[in-house]
Design a binder for these strands. Structure first.
Ligand SMILES: [Zn+2]
Ligand SMILES: [Zn+2]
Ligand SMILES: [Zn+2]
Ligand SMILES: [Zn+2]
Lengths: 139, 139
DNA sequence: ACAGCAATGAAAACCGTTTTCAATCGAACG
DNA sequence: CGTTCGATTGAAAACGGTTTTCATTGCTGT
């Protein structure tokens, strides 16, 4: 009777080889990285993982809530393994890419309230703040 | 001595033919629309405007702050002519596309404050709420 | 060993957007 | 008018990120 068959399983963290590789690479990362960056990084590290598999792994992990997805202003998707499992937002440095996770109950409350005011049933919301972190604040 | 030469001029609204066409089409629109949708719409209405020009016009108008840009979750850029000139956010209906503009001084203050707490110099921020408007709230 | 199915990845297809470039338009000047 | 010259236009090609296709490979249970 089926054991740890690939595809789904014990709360779904890193089941396939590609997923494990991606998770490992993300673990060491601070900033949000794109699929292509990840692929290049894995290639460089000897890990033979095809670009297609990187995309597939990231998609699966994102669906499973294991990684956070963030769209760059140019529309490119970037990924990160965040510390918190709970809903949160980000403060990202446009220079070094570092991201700070921030939880804001007051904001969440506000969102629900303004939606209610306009009689909207909220599906989701996004809030991202971008700027320069202290160390990158040269200029 | 040079008169209304194209390229720049009286507070920059709709100088080129393409820009005028785009602005006219957007004026009649409630929801955010993509460049391609706009192009199709203009084509359908007999307005002969090339797709390239639609992209260029939208870019110019967005740069001039005449239209708001919103990225769909899939990364596609959508545009809308908003009522307010001031900084604001949106509440968008995932079904009919209608958007409500919302100004939130308290939120803006909060953003600046949380950034300060983490010693970030804020460049920009985005906040979008998506859900179902009242009329679309069928199920 | 064998059958069956999921995982893999190279190559091709996709899709929104940008670039290229030759044709066209239109104001300015003689 | 006719010419000039920069701005505008748009078809076609290039681009860049992502998804699909499909043949191969690797496991798992029999
Ligand atoms: Zn930084
Ligand atoms: Zn939130
Ligand atoms: Zn609606
Ligand atoms: Zn704001």
């Amino acid at each position: 009777m089926t054991r740890v068959r690939n595809g789904h399983d014990a709360h779904g963290a890193g089941v396939t080889r590609a997923q494990r590789a991606v998770l490992a690479a993300l673990a060491a990362e601070g900033p949000f990285v794109s699929a292509q960056d990840l692929h290049a990084q894995l290639r460089g590290a000897g890990e033979g993982v095809g670009l297609t598999s990187v995309y597939r792994a990231l998609q699966a992990l994102a669906d499973a809530g294991e990684v956070d997805v963030l769209r760059t202003p140019s529309g490119e998707a970037t990924y990160r393994r965040c510390g918190s499992d709970r809903h949160h937002h980000h403060l990202v440095c446009t220079s070094c890419g570092t991201a700070v996770e921030v939880e804001a109950p007051a904001l969440e409350r506000w969102v629900r309230q303004v939606a209610a005011t306009h009689e909207f049933a909220v599906d989701s919301h996004t809030l991202e703040i971008s700027g320069r972190c202290r160390t990158c604040a040269r200029d």
